[in-house]
């Protein structure tokens, strides 16, 4: 855990392996969030819904 990180370089880009893994993980989470089913209320329930356009 105390060893220096491995780095990947391509032209001017120099990034550590943990950093690129975090970015890839964030991308996966974002895509999953777009498509994962979200629990909705039963139709017919009423109440203040806040403002919207």
């Amino acid at each position: 855990m105390d060893a220096p990180a491995q780095y990947l370089s391509w032209n001017f880009i120099l990034i550590s392996v943990p950093n690129i893994l975090v970015i890839l993980g964030m991308t996966v989470v974002f895509v999953v969030a777009l498509f994962a089913p979200f629990p909705h209320d039963e139709p017919g329930e009423k109440g203040p819904g806040g403002r919207h356009d």
């Binding site: 974002f30 969030a33 777009l34 979200f38 909705h40 109440g47 203040p48 403002r51 919207h52």
Partner: peptide, 20 residues
Amino acid sequence: LDSLLPHRMPYYVGSWVYVF
């Protein structure tokens, strides 16, 4: 108050993207 603390949202808000 019912705008400051709404207990329901429009249907389109029902996505995990809005949780971030």
